[in-house]
Design a protein around this nucleic acid. Structure first.
Length: 469
RNA sequence: CGGGCUGUAGCGCAGCUUGGUAGCGCGCUGCGUUCGGGACGCAGAGGUCCCGGGUUCAAAUCCCGGCAGCCCGACCA
């Protein structure tokens, strides 16, 4: 019996395909309130892997984890003019509590610059207290008009870093370090998603920032997804919250702050960057389960052999799971494919008689026969090989759909199914408005050599434009 | 928040036009036969027909109002 399509094919209806994967891979469900999301164990396991990898990099960059409250006084938001203007449409506000109307409404945090600013002001006295490098893992609420599981939900999980520095240079250097050493390193090395690093044009900048940086990835339908962002906040929040320090000369100076975040949206990006018509395809370094040992039949000898093989693999550092042979074989294979497990090892009585197993890889679908004793050395190598190939594949896919163009009409044409790259001088604020009519936005600004500019004032910048999530 | 489409068993849907006993496929439970790419037989369980109101002898079906989902826009991690 041939395996049939369990999912809507990508080519037929990409958004439908996405929803099918989220449902059939048991990643998430809609919550009862519009825009909310229930993250199921498999989806959460993926998020935990993302967290672990990003958290380790954040700590490597010297920031410490802390936790600030969910509830923020509404008055805090009014302290930074652009911040309140940018966020007010998305705020959820608590007006009643304890059975009474509150004297001052409480905002459910959409981001924590304001509360953290308040405490930075309290904690920072001297230049010796700087830099102050904080991070928190938290949920935030931004009321969404058009929610989509993982990609845009009214409540989502994320990590938000907040730092204070003695100088513009130090703050800028640190925000850029986070952008490359934490986010981009994670995206390329673990998520196997190549990105365009750049700065946002003023129209797309974070409310209250002097500069926003982005990692833009391309999804399988050619649309862009902002996968992480870092902001240079200048002295805007320092002014609003009186974040001063005494310099070596004993004079009071305003701090320069940064903030940076990555969210559960990454799970959606992961699905759309690598998935195919058979479901998820997880990069091995990220996969909660890297290899599944599937018993062809539910027989004691077979199950025992599976356990032995799994123990060997575990000993070799592989995250492995055993699927004992309950239920139909084909059905179980399909389920593991939908879940994107990178390597599948099939063990049946015929194999055991010969001391071999069948090993299938999720990325290419190729199946080979291998000696059982070689698995502990071969599987880890194969996982690394798949990791590399997935990045290469995503890179060539993206580069194939990224075209250099020299006019806005050409950009519109190219952005129907991919990215267009053109001189920023040809676009500008007026060009952005024209592109917007076709649902195309400027994803980022780069220098001609692809590196990140200091600001959008630099001459000779190019921009990458596309449709986006 | 605008425009379009849709809410009936866990999932996908029919039934609604023309009001009159709530159905199908998949899945689920039990038993048996199977098992190397979504197996088969038999028996079974499972429903506030999204919610509230209205019309009617009678509403899944007609009317009004909500809520929720999907797609397309404007806003965003």
């Amino acid at each position: 019996m041939a395996s049939q399509n369990v999912l809507t094919p990508q080519s037929e209806d990409f958004p439908r395909w996405y929803q099918d994967v989220v449902a059939k891979a048991e990643m998430a469900d809609n919550g009862p309130v519009r825009g909310t999301m229930v993250i199921r164990p498999y989806g959460y396991a993926i998020w935990e892997r993302i967290q672990a990898e990003i958290d380790a990099r954040i700590k490597e960059a010297g920031a410490q984890n802390a936790y600030f409250p969910l509830f923020i006084p509404e008055s805090y938001f009014s302290k930074e003019a652009q911040h309140i203007e940018g966020f007010s449409p998305e705020l959820a506000v608590v007006t009643h509590a304890g059975g009474e109307k509150l004297a001052e409404p409480i905002v459910v945090r959409p981001t924590s610059e304001t509360v953290i600013g308040e405490f930075m002001a309290k904690w920072i006295q001297s230049y010796r207290d700087l830099p102050l490098l904080l991070n928190q893992w938290a949920n935030v609420v931004r009321w969404e008009l058009r929610p989509r599981l993982f990609l845009r939900s009214s409540e989502f999980l994320w990590q938000e870093g907040h730092t204070a520095h003695a100088s513009y240079e130090d703050a800028s250097r640190y925000a850029r370090r986070i952008h490359t050493d934490v986010y981009n390193d994670f995206l390329e090395k673990v998520l196997a998603v190549p990105t365009f690093l750049g700065i946002k044009p003023a129209s797309e900048r974070f409310a209250g920032a002097i500069n926003s940086m982005t990692c833009e990835g391309m999804m399988r339908d050619g649309k862009a997804l902002q996968m992480a962002t870092s902001h240079e906040l200048g002295q805007n929040f320092a002014k609003a919250f009186d974040i001063y320090f005494q310099n070596e000369q004993g004079q009071a100076e305003l701090c320069h702050t940064t903030s940076w975040g990555a969210s559960t949206r990454l799970v959606g990006g992961l699905i759309m960057a690598h998935g195919d018509d058979r479901g998820l395809v997880l990069p091995p370094r990220l996969a909660p389960t890297q290899a599944v040992v599937v018993a062809v039949r539910d027989e004691p000898e077979v199950n025992e052999a599976c356990e032995r093989i799994a123990a060997q693999l575990k000993g070799a550092g592989v995250r492995v799971l055993v699927d004992k042979g309950r239920g139909s074989f084909g059905r179980r294979l399909t389920d593991w494919e939908i879940k994107g497990v990178p390597v599948r090892i099939e063990v049946g009585p015929r194999d055991l008689a010969q001391g071999v197993v069948a090993m299938a890889r999720r990325d290419s679908g190729a199946k080979v026969t291998l000696a059982i004793e070689s698995l502990a050395t071969q599987v880890p190598d194969l996982l690394e090989e798949i990791q590399g190939l997935m990045f290469e594949g995503a890179l060539s896919f993206r580069d194939g759909l990224t075209r250099d163009v020299s006019s806005i009409p050409e950009a519109v044409e190219a952005a129907q199914d991919g990215f267009a790259r053109l001189a920023w001088d040809l676009v500008g604020a007026e060009g952005e408005a024209v592109l917007r009519a076709d649902a195309i936005t400027v994803r980022c600004l780069q220098r001609a050599d692809g590196t990140m500019p200091v600001s959008d004032d630099e001459s000779g910048l190019i921009c990458i434009v596309s449709k986006s999530y």
